[in-house]
């Protein structure tokens, strides 16, 4: 929080460096020597046709899928290559899945309580008491995701959009340095989309974001930087305007929809 004021003046520090990431599922190459880098507190969108490897890339970053070759360095020198999911999560990479993934038999508040950044070993959990500070953090988060009035109901009873926000809230409670979001607005109404968009802006205050999204209007509205993927490789990278001017991109991705991309 206190760093925010002078943030603008400092040169952007790198938070993630991926080199030649190779992921194969049998004969199929999902990521073909994909290299990627991003700066701290950046909001970076991944776009590309189906099967381009966007979700696979997020899976690799959070430890769900192991790469066959290549290296990924998080922050200064934390290599995630051989780390387990929970270790990567503790280090500060949060993942929001495409389908809302919450704990339906815990209340909304308990969902946040479990996700919250804290010592997550068995014995710490046995002794854990809700401190005043933690309570305040949860209250604030409930306000941010707009579920303060639903704190005591079981999360399974929320609507689709509310579940999505709850999961975003849970990932925020982890206080990640890097947040991976997979199609956060899929299945949302226009009003919910807008709310999610402003939530992303709020998130950007505290962490870097990689967002996979298909909705071009949404990308145009919120992206700082866009990476276009195609068949497991990086096709192009830049601002949304630069991407739209790129001939290669128009050919493989925007080509068929060129008309609405310019609309």
């Amino acid at each position: 929080m206190k760093k925010q004021n002078n943030k603008q003046d400092q040169p952007l520090t790198s938070i993630l460096k991926c080199r030649d990431v190779l992921v194969k599922f049998g004969d199929f190459t999902a990521l073909d020597r994909f290299s990627f880098g991003m700066a701290d507190k950046e909001i970076h969108f991944l776009i590309g046709p189906n099967g381009a490897g966007k979700t696979t890339f997020l899976d690799v970053l959070c430890g769900l899928t192991k790469m066959s070759d290549g290296s990924i360095t998080f922050q200064k020198n934390y290599s995630i290559d051989d780390k387990k999911e929970f270790e990567i999560a503790r280090k500060g990479i949060g993942r929001k899945f495409q389908a809302p993934s919450i704990f339906p038999h815990l209340t909304v508040q308990e969902n946040l309580e479990v996700a919250m950044k804290q010592e997550k070993g068995v014995f710490s959990m046995l002794r854990a008491k809700m401190t005043k500070k933690q309570k305040e953090k949860i209250d604030r988060q409930l306000e941010i995701i707009g579920l303060a009035g639903k704190r005591d109901i079981l999360a399974g009873g929320l609507s689709h959009g509310q579940k999505q926000w709850l999961e975003i809230g849970m990932v925020m409670m982890q206080e990640p340095e890097l947040l991976l979001l997979d199609e956060p607005i899929a299945g949302m109404t226009e009003e919910e989309e807008e709310k999610t968009g402003s939530l992303l802006r709020e998130l950007k205050q505290d962490c870097s974001l990689i967002v996979v999204e298909h909705d071009m209007d949404f990308v145009r509205e919120y992206a700082e930087k866009v990476t276009v993927m195609h068949e497991g490789t990086l096709l192009s990278e830049g601002t949304m305007e630069e991407i739209q001017q790129n001939d290669k991109v128009r050919e493989v991705y925007l080509g068929s929809k060129g008309a609405d991309a310019h609309a």
Partner: peptide, 11 residues
Amino acid sequence: DGENRLRFSGY
């Protein structure tokens, strides 16, 4: 309820 979700929460 969701062992995967929990793993990615650092457990």
